[in-house]
Design a protein around this nucleic acid. Structure first.
Lengths: 340, 340
DNA sequence: GGCCTAATTGTTAGCGCTAACATATTTTGC
DNA sequence: GCAAAATATGTTAGCGCTAACAATTAGGCC
């Protein structure tokens, strides 16, 4: 017995056992005190907290996870953190999960489904209690990984219409359509769509844009789509190509604000009047968009709220509660500004 | 004995034991196979890998960490991830650490030393093998937390001259001085310094800026410093205040590019000619800075490289190797563009 | 008081994995 | 051909914590 009860841990860390000894309590009571459990007299709790503070005790999540089958980790997969959109979403997620004592374990997929599966596999080693995925398009293998441990999953940014799946987002397709209708309302004739980083959400925006133009009886738009990662520099480059390939263009929908900013700056540089000579619209409403001159027309997306609500929904699922709705549409807001 | 060897794990997860049984090997061999250890015949290794793949085995980091006293986690603390600078740094860190099979456990401090300590305490529950901290100014309690477990630490972004500490960065002070000398070289007379989010790095830039102006025999600059978080919107607001409070100002150094962009946009809006009427400079060289019209003069910081080198240095320390240098100065580059 | 219920605290047995120490098995040197 | 060294594989005992149960104490009521 003595061998099983070292008063000083082997590895030089303060363990629950030392705290228990110092507080004159049992290990399980220390464990309970740290998990905020009820069923502990104020006196014992105080003694334990004092002892823990004095010894500098830090709980060990690994041991806790192993013993309890709950890791209090949540795996989050986002395409990129260089994209402000996902950073805002992450902030929303963290706000809700850290409140509930969960820790985010995050990885980036680089917009690649295969990389998503690889990264998820890696994150599963943390035995997360739930998973947040960006988007609704995943490899079969990715979803398979989640089946065996029956992990709760919430899909973010898009709306998943598959039964049994949970999602929080808005209709990317409708967002694209909103820009199209705005262009139509302003009377633009020759219209273009420029996209990069052709992820499912970008493509959905393009589809909605096209559909709405068609519904309004207009010609199919001029389209320029490249697989490269979106950036301001790429937006500038693509604007040049648009002007070369389609000189009579009147309005262009750039699939996101990064590209639109690049195009806007390029127009300034070239002395092209926006919106008189060329109207420009973006998507997402980044902070810069309302400050550029001219201010950028764009669709504001509720990404922070998407993060919050996704986390809340996952929290429900992880606690065995049934979320109010399996699909939460948070909508979007068209901001018609000076650039169109 | 039979009770200690369940062929199917209690929790429905595939365990190392089931893989071992399926491959006709011992558990330790499976463990060795997954840690890429040598001392395994190609035949056994193949059998284990096949069995693991067939069963869908995912290792359990919690159990591994508990058994081995190595978590393969690295705790990283950054002020914010809404700031591109730290995102770039994180990308550099991740590139190196994921290569070495380490996982980043990240938290944000919101530029607050007390929050840094709180978050570090939380991350220590992951028993990280090393820690990366942003900056060199920390609460005594923060450093104390790292003392007991004798955790390797590398400080990022600034250079720490304290003996026994490791840091990778550049001289923020010199960066500020570089802008000052640039302004002096261009012959500007009435000069200003505008700062927000007064973290130690911002203050160091200001100090260097001031020092260099003094060395050049100029008057002390007009200064406007506010504690708010930096943003484009704030940059625009502060520009208005600068013009009101100091109408004859000729050149302003904004402590970062976000503020400078806001100021630049505001000048465009107000019809203030940059740099003719007012010269503007920023700090960090964000992607937009070379595309704005006029292009923004700024100091490019090697933040991605700082991330890479910090991670590499920490890797050395975690493996018990001694890094080549305890302090790595990666410098910076002044980009004198159109705005000044 | 005596009996019951409820609240509080403790004991025991692992969670899944790996370090440290055996134990085969093969290779090498002479 | 045989001991010594090198290589390959296995056995055992926990890592620090918590679930499940057990035991103890306090409170309530007639």
């Amino acid at each position: 017995m003595a061998a099983r009860k070292p008063r000083t841990s082997v590895r030089g860390r303060v363990t629950i056992e030392e705290v228990a000894a110092a507080a004159g309590a049992s290990t399980i009571s220390v464990s309970r005190a740290f998990r905020g459990s009820a069923r502990l007299s104020p006196d014992l709790r105080a003694r334990i907290e004092n002892a823990a503070a004095a010894l500098g005790y830090v709980p060990d999540r690994a041991a806790s996870a192993l013993a309890s089958a709950r890791s209090m980790n949540v795996a989050v997969l986002v395409p990129s953190i260089t994209n402000m959109v996902f950073v805002d979403m992450l902030a929303g997620i963290d706000a809700v999960l850290s409140q509930a004592r969960y820790q985010i374990i995050m990885a980036t997929t680089n917009y690649c489904p295969a990389e998503e599966q690889r990264q998820l596999h890696g994150l599963l080693a943390f035995r997360p209690d739930g998973v947040l995925l960006t988007g609704i398009d995943h490899l079969p293998g990715t979803l398979n990984l989640l089946k065996a441990p029956a992990l709760p999953v919430v899909h973010m940014m898009e709306l998943n219409h598959q039964v049994g799946s949970y999602s929080v987002g808005f209709s990317q397709d409708e967002g694209g359509a909103a820009i199209a209708r705005h262009f139509v309302g302003r009377g633009y004739g020759r219209i273009g769509f420029v996209a990069a980083q052709l992820d499912p959400r970008t493509l959905a925006r393009g589809a909605g844009f096209r559909r709405a133009l068609k519904e309004a009886g207009l010609d199919a738009p001029y389209e320029l789509m490249v697989p490269d990662r979106s950036s301001i520099a790429l937006g500038a480059t693509l604007l040049d190509r648009v002007l070369t390939e389609c000189p009579d263009i009147e309005a262009v929908f750039f699939c996101n604000d990064d590209l639109a900013h690049g195009a806007l700056f390029r127009c300034q540089r070239l002395g092209i009047a926006v919106p008189q000579r060329l109207a420009i619209a973006g998507f997402n409403d980044l902070p810069a968009s309302s400050w550029t001159v001219p201010a950028l027309s764009t669709v504001a997306t509720p990404r922070h709220e998407i993060g919050r609500k996704s986390a809340a929904m996952l929290l429900d699922l992880m606690c065995g509660r049934t979320p109010e709705a399996a699909r939460l549409d948070l909508g979007f807001t068209l901001h018609a500004r000076e650039s169109s």
